[in-house]
Amino acid sequence: MRSDGLAWSEVVLGARITDVSELSGGLTSTMLALTDGAGRRSVLRLMTNEPWKAHGLALTEREASALQALEDTPVPAPTSLGLDAEGRHTGVAAHLMSRLPGHPATRFDDVDVTAMAELLAVIHEVKPAKPFRSYQSWAWEAKRILPAWTKHAGSWQRAFDVLAEEPPSYQPMFLHRDYSHRNLLWSGGEITGVVDWVETSTGPAWLDAGHAATNLALAFGPEPAWTFLERYAALTGRRMEKYWLVMDAVGFLPPPGREPMFGSPTELERLDHWLHDLMRLT
């Protein structure tokens, strides 16, 4: 599979691959950093991990379409170089992209969080020629079970009650749908890349903002998460919408019978605290 992907990449690039290394952090895919004989750097996504592998065709096609929609925008996204969505050449759905400079950040201060909010506001102003699919909630009804580790059972139950209601109306926006610090590249204190566009959707802006905030809360605690939401609200003039923030937080619960994907005691405690804080919003 890997060798097939490299052979296909050489055909697409028109050059021999001279260096290959696996990028860390890929949840859905095997991500390979490639360098070819001309010195060009690219990234090969191979949809090897279930359950995403089964949906690889749609995911890679969506990512390629998103990158094409972003080509003439200020958003620093990769360029799509080649697509084997059906896996005819690589054995699994594959997408070859340019590799952007920079590295993920391991800590965030107010300046970084503000830059994240500013860039998300820019993403939400993108007007693709054809709308992407409507957002999908990751807070499935089957997930709405009180977690055994919670210290705030009442807050979780109220959150489930909120999500049982009809969603509020919203202005459809272009969403990254997995916007978080994990999918940003930085260099010299500036964001140099936004990656992982397989979930690109049309939906409410605060669902995107909420996902970024939940990820910040789990990784670093509530302070940068709240700062991010406040900066985004100030930049866009959009009032925080509790429903979408709660939807995202509940979406981090695992399906019945499965362990949380993040799972460390610290992250579970932070998710518990974050959801409790969100339920205090008016």
Rank of each mutant, 00 (worst) to 15 (best):
R99H: 07
G102C: 01
G102P: 00
H103K: 13
P104Q: 07
T106N: 09
T106K: 11
R107K: 12
F108N: 00
F108C: 03
D110P: 06
D110K: 14
V111G: 10
V111C: 11
T114W: 13
M116P: 01
M116A: 03
M116L: 13
A117K: 03
A117Q: 04
E118Y: 03
E118V: 01
L119P: 02
L119N: 01
V122E: 14
V122N: 09
V122C: 15
V122S: 10
E125I: 09
E125T: 12
K127Q: 14
P128H: 06
K130F: 07
F132T: 04
S134F: 08
Q136C: 09
W138T: 14
A139K: 08
E141W: 13
K143F: 12
R144A: 07
R144D: 04
I145Y: 05
I145A: 13
L146H: 02
L146T: 05
A148K: 07
A148C: 03
A148H: 06
A148V: 11
W149E: 02
T150N: 06
K151D: 14
K151H: 15
H152T: 09
H152S: 14
A153S: 12
A153N: 06
G154H: 02
S155H: 08
Q157K: 14
R158E: 13
A159V: 12
A159C: 09
A159D: 07
F160D: 05
F160A: 06
F160G: 07
V162Q: 03
E166D: 15
P167A: 06
P167V: 05
P168V: 02
P168E: 05
Y170P: 06
Y170R: 04
P172K: 11
P172R: 11
P172Q: 07
M173F: 11
F174D: 03
H176S: 10
R177A: 15
D178S: 00
D178T: 02
Y179T: 00
R182K: 15
R182I: 10
N183E: 08
L184G: 00
L184P: 01
L185E: 00
L185K: 01
W186P: 00
G188C: 06
G189S: 05
T192G: 07
G193P: 01
G193F: 01
G193D: 00
V194L: 03
V194P: 00
V195P: 02
V195A: 10
D196Y: 04
V198L: 08
V198T: 10
T200S: 04
S201P: 05
T202C: 13
G203K: 00
P204G: 06
P204Q: 09
P204F: 11
W206E: 12
L207S: 11
L207M: 12
D208E: 15
A209F: 05
A209E: 07
A213M: 11
T214V: 15
N215Y: 10
L216A: 06
A217C: 09
L218H: 09
F220L: 13
F220S: 11
G221A: 06
P222N: 08
E223H: 09
P224G: 02
W226L: 13
W226E: 15
L229Y: 03
L229R: 01
E230T: 12
E230S: 14
R231N: 08
A233I: 01
A233D: 00
A233V: 01
A234R: 05
T236E: 02
T236R: 04
T236H: 08
R238V: 04
R238Q: 10
E241V: 10
E241G: 07
E241C: 08
Y243E: 06
W244Y: 05
W244C: 05
W244I: 07
L245W: 09
V246G: 04
